[in-house]
Structure formats: structure tokens, C-alpha cells
Computed example of a mutant assay.
Amino acid sequence: MAWWQSRGTSHYSPADLYLTRLMDVTIAAWLFWIGSSIGSFLNVVAWRMPRNQSVNGRSYCPRCNTRLKARDNFPVFGWLALRGRCRTCRLPISPRYPIVEAAVGISITLVGIAEIYRLSLPYQNQHWHGGPLWVPMVDQAVLVTLLYHVIAIALSWAMGLIRMDGHPLPRRLSTTAAVMLVGGMLIFPTVMVVPWQMQVPANWRADGLHVDAVMRVITALVAATFLGRCLARGLCIGADPKLDPLGKSTIRLIDLITMIAVPALVLGWQSLAAVLVVGACITLGLGRVLPKSTDMLGRFAIAMPITLCLSILFWRPLHAAGFWPSDGSSPWVLLTAAALLLFTPTWLRERQTLPPEVLPLEEAEDHDSDQADSTVLEN
């Protein structure tokens, strides 16, 4: 960056800008340290919370239950230093731990840089970044908004990791998300970033608009519920909150709506349909990366924090683009995004296994013979 900013001028050389640009390196390193540490904690949450264990206390080896030393618990690099094995029992430790730490760290680092340097958020004062005096502009609104987004990203990652493992979302996690995200927006309306209305003045600011914050929360939750039911045709086949409120498919639907509510609160109801379409496309790509045992809802759950981070990073250019639904967009743009979302269950459809009593006669007989063969093999 120092070389790029000093080219074409004789007033200063790259060496004159090294100390200035060192500030950028410090900010990026600090953000990655915080983000990867959050990722390390989310590994604990994803393992312990579905098992009703406390998330407090030091991390330990899942093989021999030995507590990890402080230097071994260093995010990402601790696992690399141990070469993926426990220092005590020398048994392998899953590479999932550093992968999650790195993924969360990178996502929070990118979002933090984009917001501290005012590169991503709409309705925000901008400044030129091309010269040697490129510095972050931080005030209370920026810090509160960044903290809110970091919490939302962390909660979205936690939900994705738990659902990827096939566990239903713990009630403690859903309650924490509701308190942090809904309560945070009602207390600090600044974190709305964009309004809940479709038409606002060009100089719109969210400071002090508590009534608008209430409407923003209501519209976001209604949109998440409605669009979640649309996706349920593929991800939660058979869900029926009225006739089967405690059924497995209904629980999957509730988890789906909860995961969708996070980007709905952060980004607003206007762009939610387009965000979910992008998330559905990312879900298809994750099929080649995640374990084959991960079901479609688990893949979609991991796609949600990735989509949320990308949406925040490119929020300003997308907000100004005519094809992306947002406040000020044409109703036809919103309807087009909603129509595209209606087609996503065709490629996100979860494979459904029916019991023998509802299968056709020939399939039921084949199912019974397969069960008999498996019983003989077990005996």
C-alpha cells in the first residue's frame, strides 16, 4: 500500500509511509486476533451447548480430557504448533477447530476493516482513501454498529455450526440472540443503518429513532417468518406448527426462521429475499466442501454467516445498485427477488425418507426385505 500510494510523485517515497501503513497492519492483526478468539469460543459453544454442558471453563482435549495450556489454546497457530495432536495423549485433534477459528477471524476482520475505514455502510459520511493520509475515522456510532455486527456474525456462525452437526438450536442460544440483536437495536437505533420504510430523505440518520427501531424489528421478524416458510418446502418438508408442533420437521422450521432472522435484523426486510437467494447459491457450493453427512439445512446454516458478511462488505454498492432490493428500490425489484426465492427449494430440497406404511406396495416389500437382510447380517 505504501508503494502504491507513493508512485507517481517525488514528494515522498514508500519508506516515508511505512509507519503510517503500519497502523493498518495493527488494526487488521488486532481484528483477526479478536475474531479468531471468538471462533475458538464458538467451537466450545457448538460442542457443549447442544449437550447441555457449561460453556465456561478452559478448553480440554476431547480424547483424554486434559486441559489445554494457554500457549496451546492460541487460535489457529496453537493447533499448527501442536501439528494437530494433543500434547498429552498425542491423539489427533480435528482440523475443524483451526478452520472455524480462521473463518470467523477472517470474516470479522474484513467487516471490521470495511466499517472502521467507512467503506461499506450506506447513509454514512465517506472520505477519500487514495492518498498517504488514509486513516480510519472512528466515532461512537461506528464502534456501536461494528460491535452489533460482530455479535450478529458470531451468533450466525454459532447457529450454523450447531445445525451443521445435526443438532437443533439450543433455547439458550436463541434467547441470547433475541436479547442481543433485538434489544441492541431498540436501545441503539443507530445500528439500523438503513430504514424500515421504502422512501426516506437523502440525509436520513437513524440516531434517536426508537419508534422506527421497533418497526424495523417487527418487519424483519415478519419477513424472516414468511420467507422461512417459503424455504420450508425444500428444507423442512412436512413441517406443520399447528398439527405437529413438536415434530422434527417443525423444529427444523423454527431453527430455519431463527437463522434467517439474524440477517433480517441486520440488513432489513427489503433485501432479505435477495440475500437468501445468494445464500442458497453458496449452499450448493458448500456441498463440495462440507462433510457428506451434512444435510441440506446444515449447509444452508453455514451459508448464512458467509452471506451476512458478504452483504455487509458490499452493502454500499449494492444499496446504490438498481438491481438489488433495498429502500428506494422499485417494487418490481423486490417482487423479482421474491420470485427467485420461490424457486430455490427446487435445488435445496432435502431428501425425504417415508415410512413403509406410506410407501407404494412394491417399495414397501423391498423395504421389508432390506430390513430382514440387515437383521440377518447383524445376528
Score class of each variant (00 low, 15 high):
M1W: 10
W4M: 14
Y12P: 00
S13V: 11
A15V: 11
D16L: 07
L17H: 09
L19T: 06
T20W: 07
D24F: 02
F41W: 12
L42T: 02
N43H: 05
M49Y: 04
M49D: 06
P50S: 04
C61Y: 01
N73Y: 01
N73C: 05
L80R: 10
C86R: 06
R87C: 05
L91R: 14
S94G: 03
R96E: 06
P98M: 10
S107L: 02
S107T: 05
E115S: 03
R118M: 00
L119V: 05
L121V: 04
G130Q: 07
G131M: 00
G131E: 01
P132K: 14
V135R: 00
V138T: 00
Y148C: 04
A154L: 03
W157A: 07
G160E: 08
P170H: 12
R171N: 13
R171L: 12
R171D: 13
R171C: 09
S174R: 10
T175A: 11
A177S: 09
G184W: 04
I187A: 15
F188E: 04
V194E: 07
Q197T: 14
M198G: 15
V200F: 07
N203K: 10
A206G: 00
T219I: 13
L221V: 07
G228E: 04
L235T: 00
D240W: 00
D240E: 01
L243W: 15
G247S: 10
S249P: 03
R252A: 15
R252D: 09
D255E: 11
I257H: 02
I257R: 05
L267E: 10
L267W: 02
L267H: 07
G268L: 02
Q270H: 10
L272E: 00
A273G: 03
A273W: 00
A274V: 06
A274H: 05
L276T: 01
L276I: 06
L276W: 00
V277G: 09
L286D: 14
L290Q: 01
P291L: 08
D295L: 03
P305Q: 05
S311Y: 02
W315H: 12
R316D: 05
R316C: 03
L318P: 04
S326N: 10
S329V: 09
S330W: 15
W332I: 06
W332C: 06
T336K: 07
T336D: 11
T336H: 12
A339D: 07
F343S: 13
P345L: 02
R349G: 09
V358H: 15
E363A: 11
Q371K: 14
A372I: 03
V376C: 11
L377R: 14
E378H: 15
